[in-house]
């Protein structure tokens, strides 16, 4: 295990895409220390910013990087990683695990926006809250998250799963506006409330909301389901099952808890 211990508190954005098991593997501590890192507009080396400890006591198969302390200014931690583990003790900055295809990232604190952006595989687990655009594509692209799993124990911001194509995003807390906007496949599972516009412009895929949520007028009620399956697991309902977004000719499935959303009861008249 490589342990990165920040030498000081950071205040400028740090380009940290070199912090990845794929890049660290097979490098000596010295080589790791020499890896390029931009801090603001100054080019430096990883060793300028971190004390590097090589805790190779137990040669486990899985390569692990641990960042001790606050990593909230570090952008692109674990970008493009395909294996191993990253553990962040505190908060993590934006673009955590961007474009990753395998391995796991665990964050004890919060994570910034664009966590799991363009992700294709692996797992990101955030114990705190997450920002906006979780699993989203880059600006102008429609290639959002295409596999893997993101678990957020706290709340998440806007546009979670934007242009999502596959995989699972699970939010144990609440979610902001536009969860699953433009999504074409995959699953978003919200255990708390949604601020609204969930599934806006969705083409396909599945969104499950266990808490309270407004529903877009461009969704049509389809049925009431006693339970719904998420990632092989059965979630107890009952759920209203909506189809949309009609404006985009969508066939997305939006499951919304019946008990937590009495304001949706007028829809039931269409089911008789």
């Amino acid at each position: 295990m490589i342990i990165l211990d920040p030498k000081r508190a950071f205040r400028f954005p740090i380009e940290a895409k070199n912090i990845s098991p794929d890049i660290f593997a097979k490098k000596s501590s010295k080589e790791i220390a020499a890896l390029q890192m931009w801090e603001g507009n100054r080019k430096g080396a990883l060793g300028d910013l971190f004390n590097i400890k090589n805790d190779s006591g137990s040669p486990s198969e899985e390569f692990t990087i641990k960042i001790e302390g606050d990593a909230s200014k570090l952008r692109n931690i674990g970008a493009r990683m395909s294996m191993g583990h990253i553990v962040v003790d505190g908060d993590a900055g934006m673009h955590l695990g961007e474009d990753m295809s395998g391995g796991t990232i665990t964050v004890a604190g919060n994570a910034g926006s664009w966590a799991g952006s363009k992700m294709k595989g692996g797992t990101i687990e955030i114990k705190g809250n997450a920002g906006d655009y979780i699993g989203a594509p880059y600006r102008g692209s429609t290639k959002g998250m295409n596999g893997g799993k993101i678990i957020i124990h706290g709340n998440a911001g806007y546009e979670v799963g934007c242009f999502m194509r596959n995989g699972l995003i699970q939010i144990l807390g609440d979610v902001g506006l536009f969860a699953g906007i433009h999504m074409s496949n995959g699953t978003i599972f919200v255990q708390g409330n949604s601020e609204g516009r969930a599934g806006a412009q969705m083409i396909n895929g599945k969104i499950v909301i266990c808490g309270h949520t407004p529903v877009m007028p461009t969704f049509t009620i389809d049925s009431i389901k006693p339970k719904v399956k998420v990632d092989g697991e059965k979630i107890e309902g009952p759920f209203y099952r909506f189809i949309g977004d009609l404006a985009d000719n969508g066939n997305g499935k939006l499951f919304v808890s019946k008990t937590k959303n009495p304001h949706l009861s007028p829809y039931e008249k269409y089911l008789e």
């Binding site: 594509p137 880059y138 600006r139 102008g140 692209s141 290639k143």
Partner: peptide, 8 residues
Amino acid sequence: LLRPEDHV
């Protein structure tokens, strides 16, 4: 302007 995803 239309294509940031092309430039990046």
